[in-house]
């Protein structure tokens, strides 16, 4: 594999929790805690996980809406900061948000919303407007009908098409889709997914596709990253991960999906309780408090991502690390290898 288009290393963001009389710090939310992954040009990386796992913070870090505490982001081999300005990063990495209505300024027409970015970037007014209309047509909205409309006059699906058009106005290399289809009705969601597939093929885009819907992620992604409490639990090719999840948390997530078969309904919940809070994550492997396979080593040592036998498949679980001290470590490692 050639050098990855996007390379994230040790990315960390902690939010101080303010409280008390004078805004003293009362704790730290470890929203993203040392995540490392690559994205190759032209592929789609799916990110899944539950609330508090840090997937939305990761998205915002990638487009520099939030500045990371530590770690690096490299785009095409150039590190953001030293080699590549934030301004250039923002042109090459764009984002589409979940809430299609909140993402659009209610006072701007659709063409104004789309042309705003290019105009800020120095494009002349009439060219930016022409570009906006071209993009509207490209996302399947007739410019003659929609360019002069306001957000409240459009349906959710149409607004999300506009948001996609706005993201494309910079001709970005990467588009981060943060739950971009989650708020849409199923029948409309399918239309937008088709559009995303078309745009990717036409423009050679790379997607980072964040969603809580595992069916959609499976359909859209080439590789999938599972996050838990600010860390990467598992990352690997989509089919390998879905058919043989290596991390117990990935397995639980997949098992929690409704079965779609009335004769084989889910009989037992794979996990008990709610996902814990990222304010004071447990030590060691963060999943050990809910894990059925947890052993003593799990509460003491963070396993870190371990390379699985299959190419490009990594999981952070002691079970797969020979000699980790987990009671099942050797045998299971032997089986998978």
């Amino acid at each position: 594999m050639s050098a990855p288009l996007l390379s994230v290393s040790g990315l960390t963001k902690h939010f101080p929790l303010k409280g008390g009389l004078f805004g003293r710090s009362t704790g730290t939310v470890r929203a993203v805690d040392g995540i490392t992954f690559d994205v190759a040009e032209g592929e789609t990386l799916g990110i899944v996980g539950e609330s508090g796992c840090g997937k939305s913070t990761t998205a915002r870090l990638l487009v520099d809406l939030i500045t990371p505490d530590s770690g690096s982001i490299r785009l095409g081999g150039k590190e953001i900061g030293p080699d590549l300005s934030v301004r250039d990063l923002r042109r090459q990495v764009q984002m589409v948000f979940q809430d299609s209505y909140a993402s659009l300024n209610p006072r701007l027409t659709m063409e104004d919303a789309i042309s705003f970015g290019p105009m800020v970037g120095g494009m002349v007014g009439h060219k930016a407007v022409a570009l906006a209309r071209d993009l509207l047509a490209r996302v399947g909205l007739d410019p003659a009908r929609f360019a002069g409309r306001y957000p409240h006059e459009l349906s959710g699906g149409q607004r999300q098409r506009v948001n996609i058009a706005r993201a494309l106005a910079f001709s970005p290399k990467i588009v981060v889709l943060d739950e971009a289809v989650s708020a849409l009705d199923k029948s409309v969601e399918a239309q937008v997914l088709n559009l995303l597939a078309d745009l990717k093929a036409e423009l050679g885009l790379t997607y980072i596709f964040i969603s809580h819907d595992l069916n959609v992620v499976r359909y859209m992604s080439d590789r999938v990253m599972v996050m838990y409490l600010g860390q990467v639990a598992e990352i690997g090719p989509v089919e390998a991960l879905y058919s043989a999840p290596a991390h117990p948390y990935s397995r639980a997530l997949l098992a929690a999906m409704p079965s779609m078969d009335p004769d084989r309904r889910t009989m037992e919940a794979p996990l008990a309780g709610d996902p814990p809070n990222p304010i004071n994550p447990p030590p060691g492997c963060r999943f050990h408090t809910r894990c059925r396979l947890a052993d003593t080593v799990c509460s003491g040592t963070d396993p870190g991502l371990y390379v699985m036998p299959e190419a490009g498949h990594l999981a952070a679980c002691h079970i797969h690390i020979p000699g980790s001290g987990h009671r099942d470590a050797k045998s299971r490692a032997g089986v998978t290898a």
């Binding site: 915002r60 487009v63 520099d64 809406l65 301004r87 923002r90 042109r91 764009q94 984002m95 948000f97 809430d99 909140a102 993402s103 659009l104 300024n105 701007l108 919303a113 705003f116 970015g117 800020v120 970037g121 948001n163 706005r166 106005a169 910079f170």
Partner: peptide, 21 residues
């Protein structure tokens, strides 16, 4: 609100964001 975030992601300056959005 996200449209302000989106404007920031498009590289607009603080003054422009305040004026337009």
């Amino acid at each position: 609100i996200e449209y302000v975030e989106a404007a920031r992601a498009s590289g607009a300056s603080g003054f422009t964001i305040v004026r337009v959005h």
